[in-house]
Design a protein around this nucleic acid. Structure first.
Lengths: 124, 124
DNA sequence: TTATCATATGAGTAGCTGTTCATATGAATA
DNA sequence: TATTCATATGAACAGCTACTCATATGATAA
């Protein structure tokens, strides 16, 4: 799909005619490692969905079973379970079996902070 | 596409058989308004892309013109411009004409903070 | 003016994502 | 044991998104 040869050549040419070659080099060197940037993008991507944000807002207030969430969101159980799986895989929520139910809760303090700042930003 | 009648009925039924009806009601009442949650989801969605995270990491270090970014990312100019448009529309970056060039920079302090916490989370 | 450079943008497309439907799993109850 | 309830999951599909290509815009230089 990619055409690395062409892209690299173009990048080089661009660097030569760039207005700020020193800054460009400096920025290029101080950029975080690619896999790290991928991970951060992936984290935000998982947070970037209406249903999942609603789930996280609910769990922010209390740990809840799937049935509770289904009720709160007014969505069908399958859709909720699918999204919980995405959140679980991303280590954003944690699950814990309790009899027939599975109780979900936020996994990490960072997540709550991200949500808080996100809301702060859009409210402004 | 949606079938509100069916969804609502299912939600009601679920609430009746739910294990924690009090908690559910409490959470339901204290949830943020829908449009707000939409906005937050949209914000994270825009942050949740590899190319855009790389752009923001670069701009975190210095304001840069499109050509600089094209060089740093090693991508073609059109792709970079398209993503800059997404970031501009989301009020995440700000642009400023300077002769033939357009200089981009981060728009908001919250954004830098979100990125910082995001990296903190994935590094842990 | 014309030519050139930096940036923006519309159309097309391949790949991804969120929901639904149907069904499976697995625990509690009868 | 069989049944019921809570949850999970695979397949299918519609809608979205990020990139590429071609081209437009708009500013500077000749």
């Amino acid at each position: 799909m990619n055409k690395p040869g062409i892209i690299e050549r173009e990048a080089e040419l661009c660097q030569q005619r760039c207005d700020h070659p020193d800054v460009v080099d400096e920025v290029r060197c101080s950029m975080p490692a690619e896999p790290l940037q991928q991970d951060v993008a992936q984290l935000f991507k998982v947070l970037g969905d209406h249903t999942r944000i609603r789930i996280l807002n609910a769990l922010y207030r209390s740990e809840l079973c799937v049935c509770d969430l289904t009720s709160i969101l007014g969505m069908n159980q399958s859709a909720v379970s699918h999204q919980l799986r995405v959140l679980r895989d991303a280590k954003i929520v944690r699950s814990q079996k309790q009899g027939k139910n599975v109780i979900y809760s936020l996994d990490d303090i960072h997540i709550a902070e991200l949500i808080r700042i996100g809301f702060e930003h859009v409210v402004e």
